[in-house]
C-alpha cells in the first residue's frame, strides 16, 4: 500500500523532527561559543566521548587473550554489566519476596490482617531513605546496593500481587469449584493466571524503581557501575562523559522496559484489553 507507507513515513518524520532540531540547535550554540563547554559540551563531543567510553582501553594484543574478551573490555560495558548485575540480583530477591508475600496476603485474610499494617507503614518510605541504614547494616559494596534495590522492587510487586489475587472475579472461582478444582489446582490454574495482569504491572513498576535505585546506590555505596561513573566524571569536570553515561542509562532502561512489555503482552495475549492492539 503506497498510501500506507507514505503515512508511516510522515509519522516517522514527525517523531524525529523535534529531537533533531534540538540537537542541531545545541550543536550550533556550542560551536558558536555561546555555551561554556564545561557546563554543556556539544552533542558531537558527547558522541566522541561515548565512543571512547565504549571501546577497549588498549589496542588488541593476541598475547593478552581472545579477541572477544578484548572487544568487551571497554569501561562502559563493565559499568553496564555491574549495574545490571545489581539490578537483577536485587530485583529477584525483592520481587521474589514481594510475589510470595503478596500471594499469601491475597489468598489468606488472616495473613492480610496481620501483615497489612506493617506494609502500610513501610510502603511510603522511599527506598532511598533507607541508604543510611543500609550502609550502617551492610557497609559499602554490593550488599547495601542489593538491599536497596530489593526494597525498590519489593513494594510495587507486593501491592500489585495482593490487589491481583484479591480482585479475582468470583465467577472464575465458582466455575472452577463446579468443575472440581480445589487447593493447588485452583491456585495454579485459576487464581494465579487471573491475577497475572496485576502481577505483571507490578513487575514492570518494580523493575523501574529498581533501575532508579541502582543508580543512586552506586553514587553512594559502591565504586563501580554507571551511577558511580557519572559521579566520578563530575569530579574530573568531564560533562561529556556525564552525559554519555546518562544516555547509556536511558538506552538500557528503555531496552529492558521494552523487553518486559513484549513479554507481558505475550503472557497476557488472552487478555481482553489487548483485543485491539
Amino acid at each position: 500500500m503506497p498510501a500506507g507507507t507514505g503515512a508511516a513515513g510522515k509519522r516517522l518524520l514527525q517523531s524525529i523532527l523535534i529531537p533533531f532540531a534540538v540537537l542541531a540547535l545545541w550543536e550550533g550554540l556550542s560551536r558558536a561559543g555561546v555555551i561554556n563547554p564545561l557546563i554543556l559540551p556539544s552533542p558531537s563531543k558527547v558522541v566522541i566521548r561515548w565512543w571512547a567510553y565504549l571501546k577497549p582501553f588498549q589496542s588488541y594484543d593476541p598475547a593478552q587473550g581472545p579477541y572477544l574478551s578484548w572487544l568487551v573490555s571497554g569501561e562502559l560495558l563493565h559499568d553496564a554489566a555491574a549495574s545490571l548485575f545489581r539490578v537483577f540480583v536485587g530485583f529477584f530477591i525483592g520481587g521474589g519476596l514481594g510475589l510470595g508475600l503478596g500471594l499469601l496476603m491475597g489468598v489468606s485474610n488472616t495473613v492480610y490482617r496481620l501483615m497489612n499494617p506493617l506494609v502500610q507503614i513501610l510502603r511510603p518510605i522511599p527506598p532511598i531513605a533507607f541508604i543510611p541504614l543500609a550502609i550502617l547494616w551492610f557497609g559499602l559494596g554490593n550488599p547495601p546496593a542489593f538491599f536497596l534495590i530489593s526494597l525498590g522492587a519489593f513494594f510495587p510487586i507486593l501491592l500489585n500481587t495482593i490487589a491481583g489475587v484479591r480482585n479475582v472475579d468470583s465467577i472464575y472461582v465458582r466455575a472452577a469449584r463446579n468443575l472440581g478444582a480445589k487447593g493447588s489446582v485452583m491456585f495454579r490454574r485459576v487464581i494465579l493466571p487471573a491475577a497475572a495482569p496485576h502481577i505483571l504491572t507490578g513487575v514492570r513498576v518494580g523493575y523501574g524503581v529498581s533501575f532508579i535505585v541502582v543508580i543512586v546506590a552506586e553514587m553512594i555505596a559502591v565504586n563501580s557501575g554507571l551511577g558511580y561513573r557519572i559521579l566520578e566524571a563530575r569530579e574530573f569536570f568531564w560533562p561529556d562523559k556525564i552525559i554519555a553515561g546518562m544516555i547509556t542509562i536511558g538506552v538500557i532502561g528503555l531496552g529492558i522496559d521494552t523487553a518486559l512489555n513484549r513479554l507481558s503482552n505475550h503472557l497476557l495475549r488472552w487478555h481482553r484489553s489487548l483485543e485491539s492492539s
Binding site: 472464575y172 465458582r174 466455575a175 469449584r177 463446579n178
Partner: peptide, 18 residues
C-alpha cells in the same frame, strides 16, 4: 459442597479467558 456431578452453565459464560 460444589462438585462436578452438578455441572453448571452460567449466564456470564464464566470461561477462563487465559
Amino acid at each position: 459442597e460444589p462438585g462436578p456431578d452438578r455441572a453448571m452453565v452460567f449466564q456470564e459464560y464464566a470461561l477462563f479467558p487465559w
